[in-house]
Design a protein around this nucleic acid. Structure first.
Length: 424
DNA sequence: ACACCTCACTA
DNA sequence: TAGTGG
DNA sequence: GTGT
């Protein structure tokens, strides 16, 4: 059985590229790299053609120009083959699965002059976005992979209790130095051997505006529309080139007619009148502001606006506010302030220490944005576990009480009784 | 025309 | 049950 | 707003 096996690359019929019949435009490709690509393609199930036959399903090239130098445009159109950049190959190999082809399609612009140069800053390297990089680090700190299924109690210093105003920053004069924080971390390696990528962030002009629209629509309660922007932004961020024409985003997923129009306006005028209109609107401004208060959502914000309120101070005299909303107002600035990473680190150690006193062996670690390596965090997510898989029961209430006694915790934005039993 | 995420907690 | 949070 |  398995008669074929002595070939170096054990072509895998179930490889991610199986079924593909590939023709490569080798012009402008470093021979060494080309060799690797060929090997990988075959290894992962693709079939290589040395000529552009009609069996070919995919053609790869560095760019459209080089492609057209080798093959006739009309013939390509007739052939109905996928024309992709080698970047697709790179990214697919890195991800371990076929990437969406949308971002790598070589368009056969006419004329022959212009052309699109998919490389904004040279660097023939890959940049892809990993899908969800959640797994893995989870129990890295748990030391033993065996514990990964232990029951866990999840506490959120923001939604279970407020950890406001105990900050050591109250005394420190300045902490807001985006750059300083930025340089602090950025786990993104520049090494090309690594499988991490750099976010070029071209098209920031567009994503920034879309981000604002996202927030506005969310504040207004239009979650659907807001979600559309939420999906569109990362698609645009992924693009390896700077958008100069609406044609370049015509077929991208999540980018429909409306977004295209917006992009069109942004690349030509540098701004979006729709957004400017929103930002000028008294109602939108007010509702957005009120919505930033913890406990106030679109519905309440609108009611408050209709009652005639316009500033946060106006709200302080409002009778109808709930307990949570009052706290949200009282600690508005504190909650708004982001926590420097090193302070989170500090608190993690403190919490671990206190936890140990209550329940020896307990493991308290930080999750959320901290674990994801952010330079600053909006809140602090902590995860409490215990190796024996059962001692953690009943730990949370004691832990919380202890932290309140020592005034680490001062107020409850919400007090959860049942979620202390959450198991994963 | 219709779907697009979940779910515990608060009032 | 409507509203809210992430 | 986008996709089916």
């Amino acid at each position: 059985m398995a008669p074929k096996k002595d070939k170096s690359p054990p072509s895998d019929p179930n490889g991610i590229f199986s079924g593909m019949v590939v023709f490569l435009i080798e012009t402008g490709v470093q021979s060494r790299r080309l060799q690797i690509w060929k090997q990988k393609l075959v290894q992962m199930g693709a079939k290589l053609e040395d000529r552009f036959t009609k069996n070919v399903s995919h053609v790869f090239a560095m760019d459209a120009n080089l492609l057209l130098q080798k093959l006739d445009k009309e013939r390509l159109i007739r052939a109905k083959v996928k024309l992709l950049t080698y970047q697709w190959l790179e990214d697919s190999l890195i991800e371990g699965e076929k990437a969406s082809e949308d971002l790598y399609v070589l368009s056969l612009q006419s004329g022959g002059g212009e052309s699109l140069s998919p490389k904004a800053d040279n660097d023939g390297h890959s940049r892809v976005t990993r899908k969800k990089s959640r797994i893995s680090a989870e129990d890295a700190k748990n030391s033993s992979p065996r514990h990964m299924n232990d029951n866990k109690e999840r506490v959120d210093s923001r939604d279970t209790k407020s950890a406001s105003s105990f900050t050591s920053r109250s005394s420190s004069p300045e902490v807001t130095s985006p750059e300083a924080i930025d340089s602090l971390n950025k786990p993104v390696g520049t090494s090309d051997s690594s499988s991490l990528y750099k976010p070029p962030d071209l098209n920031r002009n567009i994503t920034q505006i879309f981000g604002k629209l996202l927030n506005i629509y969310r504040a207004l309660g239009d979650d659907r529309r807001s979600f559309s922007y939420y999906k569109a932004i990362p698609v645009i961020e992924k693009l390896p080139f700077k958008i100069e024409s609406v044609d370049q985003v015509k077929h991208l997923p999540s980018i429909g007619k409306s977004m295209q129009d917006h992009i069109q306006e942004i690349v030509t005028t540098g701004k979006l009148s729709k957004l400017e209109h929103f930002e000028k609107d008294e109602k939108v401004k007010t509702i957005s502001l009120f919505g930033e208060v913890w406990g106030i959502g679109p519905a309440t914000a609108l009611k408050l606006y209709e009652k005639g309120h316009r500033t946060l101070d106006d709200l302080r005299n409002e009778e109808s506010l709930t307990h949570s909303q009052r706290l949200g107002l009282k600690y508005f600035d504190d909650i708004q302030t982001r926590i420097p990473r090193h302070e989170v680190e500090e608190m993690e150690r403190l919490l671990q220490k206190v936890g140990e006193e209550i329940l020896p062996g307990v493991i308290v670690v930080c999750g959320g944005s901290y674990r994801r390596g952010k330079a600053s965090c909006g809140d602090m997510d902590i995860i409490c576990t215990h190796p024996d898989r059962k001692s953690h029961k009943g730990f949370l209430p004691k832990f919380v009480k202890r932290l309140k006694d020592m005034e680490f915790l001062r107020e409850d934005l919400v007090f959860s009784v049942h979620s202390t039993e959450v198991s994963i």
